[in-house]
Simulated scan of single mutants.
Amino acid sequence: MNYLNDSINAAVQDLIVDVFESISASNLPKLQPSELLATQPIFEKVFKLVNATGFYELDDHLDLTKAIAIETEHETLEDELMHTWVTMVTNLNTATSQEEFNTRFALITPVILKKMNAYKVAKDA
């Protein structure tokens, strides 16, 4: 796995902090889909920054992203969204450096955005 370009690594790290601060601000005992959806604009910023570098087009990164998407398929779209979040957090907790943490976050970003959009569409239908 290739790490993020140095030119965006710090910006991605700052956005990751924003996501986790937003989630941790909740007073609810369990994370709700609405709270996760509130972070979508931050995930979109991460995606735009990372996508502009060509990071997602690397073959091994594309394969990893596809594998994550398959791993997080569940019966309901809410379950898929929440499981994708749990998968991301579990995966991030195994990172051995900040650079690896940022890269792992970036890799799951397109998957979580896809799950967020699918959930919103189904909820609004």
Rank of each mutant, 00 (worst) to 15 (best):
D18H: 08
D18C: 04
D18P: 00
V19E: 02
F20P: 02
S22E: 01
S22A: 13
I23H: 00
S24V: 00
S24T: 00
N27G: 15
P29C: 09
P29R: 09
P29A: 03
K30H: 11
L31T: 08
P33Q: 04
P33M: 06
P33W: 07
S34A: 15
S34L: 11
S34R: 12
E35S: 11
L36C: 06
L37I: 13
L37T: 07
A38W: 01
A38K: 12
T39E: 06
Q40N: 01
Q40M: 10
Q40A: 05
Q40G: 02
F43N: 08
F43R: 03
E44A: 07
E44Y: 05
V46Y: 10
V46T: 15
F47A: 10
F47Q: 14
K48Q: 15
L49P: 07
L49D: 08
V50W: 06
N51A: 14
N51H: 12
N51E: 15
A52Y: 02
A52F: 03
G54I: 00
G54V: 01
F55Q: 01
F55N: 02
Y56R: 07
Y56V: 04
E57T: 11
E57K: 12
D59P: 14
H61M: 08
H61G: 05
L64G: 10
T65L: 03
K66S: 09
K66W: 02
K66V: 00
I68N: 08
I68P: 03
I68E: 03
A69F: 08
I70T: 13
I70W: 05
I70L: 14
E71F: 11
T72I: 03
E73I: 12
E73P: 01
H74E: 15
H74T: 13
H74V: 10
E75H: 10
T76M: 03
T76G: 05
L77S: 12
E78Q: 14
E78M: 06
E78H: 01
D79L: 09
D79A: 11
E80N: 05
M82Q: 02
V86M: 10
V86Q: 14
T87A: 11
T87C: 06
T87F: 13
N91W: 13
L92W: 01
N93T: 08
T94L: 12
T94P: 03
A95N: 03
T96V: 12
T96M: 10
T96I: 12
